[in-house]
Amino acid sequence: MKQLDARGDPIRGDREINETEAIVVCRVFRDFAAGIAPRTIARTLNEEGVPGPGGKPWGDTTIRGHVKRGTGLVNNELNIGRLIWNRLRYIKDPSTGKRVSRLNPESEWIVKHVSELRIVDDELWQSVRARQGEIAEKFVNLAEGVRKHHKNNKLNGARRPRTLLSGLIFCGCCDGPYSLRGPQRYACSNHISKGTCENSRSIRQDELEVRLLAGLKDRLMAPEIVEDTMRACTEETNRLNRDRRSNGDAWKAELLKVEKQIRGISEAIKAGMFHPSMKGEMDTLKARKEELTALLAGAPVDAPHILPSASAIYAKKASALTKA
């Protein structure tokens, strides 16, 4: 409920039932309990122009969600007058930098009964739970197999994309993702899952890959592209040469300075001005001298400003693109 207090500040947390949306909620519950697939329910609602949560199109996950996490319309216990806080916590994944959710123990949940906000009666709620149980029982072996596979495959999270074009294909009508739908065929995900796109065309995976690679090969061998590549290669080579020279000059200057400091300490010791701290400083300077000498010895020599065989190497790599 959007309302303000006496000072004009928003009052947060108050709720009331939206009767129009409540009708849709009950309809979804009845359809799900009757055995209609969430994808079919979502497509039907989208075709009828019924707005989904937040005004967005309906999707199958919008309806079925995740049972244990309480996500998805049919798992939202607010529909039976049970308001839950602290079910999930959110942390940052250090490997990806993305925010991910984690399920809190049920003992940490904060539950409040708000019977005045109940939309779905207990009989319908239990019918949906029974339907979910049937689905879970039907696919228990498949789900267990997937979990076992992920548990045994420690590198699963770092795997490469499953196909050459994973995540790179988009529908020309709705800009939604084109993904593998069925045996080795790409199709518009929004058309299949949500019914919000009229593009029903699909294409074989091998045909699309061959067409794309052939097109890339032809584009890469165009004279203007080859010229641009050679220019970029020359600029990068020259930049690296400048960096090498700059680093080498700095190392040489530092080496001269270190050698001078070593000679100064040696002369002081010969003159009888030895102090215990000089030994530690001498050891540090000698170690740095060895390091600088190694860096200068291993510094690569300047590459030619333009590699004579660069164009031939480029042509060979471009022609082998499909195989690669």
Rank of each mutant, 00 (worst) to 15 (best):
P10H: 14
R15N: 06
E16G: 06
A22N: 10
V24A: 06
V25G: 03
D31L: 15
A33R: 14
A34P: 03
G35M: 12
P38C: 09
T40W: 05
I41Q: 10
L45N: 02
N46H: 02
G52H: 01
G52F: 01
G54W: 05
G59P: 04
G59L: 09
G65V: 03
K68Q: 08
G72M: 02
G72N: 11
V74P: 13
L78C: 03
I84C: 08
I91Q: 07
G97A: 14
K98R: 13
V111Q: 07
V111Y: 03
E116K: 08
L117S: 00
R118L: 03
R118V: 10
S127I: 00
V128P: 14
V128W: 12
R129M: 01
E137A: 01
E137C: 00
K138P: 02
F139V: 05
E144I: 01
K148E: 15
H149V: 11
H150V: 15
N153R: 12
R162S: 05
S166L: 02
C173H: 01
D175R: 14
P177W: 03
S179D: 08
R181V: 04
Y186S: 01
A187L: 08
C188K: 11
T196L: 09
R201W: 04
S202Q: 04
R204C: 01
E207A: 09
R211W: 04
R211D: 10
G215V: 03
K217M: 13
R219T: 04
M221F: 09
M221G: 12
M221A: 08
A222G: 05
I225L: 12
N238V: 00
N238R: 13
R242W: 04
R244T: 01
S246G: 13
G248Y: 05
K257G: 09
R263I: 11
I265T: 11
M273S: 08
S277E: 08
L285R: 11
L285I: 09
L295E: 11
L296Q: 09
P304K: 02
L307G: 04
S311Q: 15
A312W: 15
K323C: 03
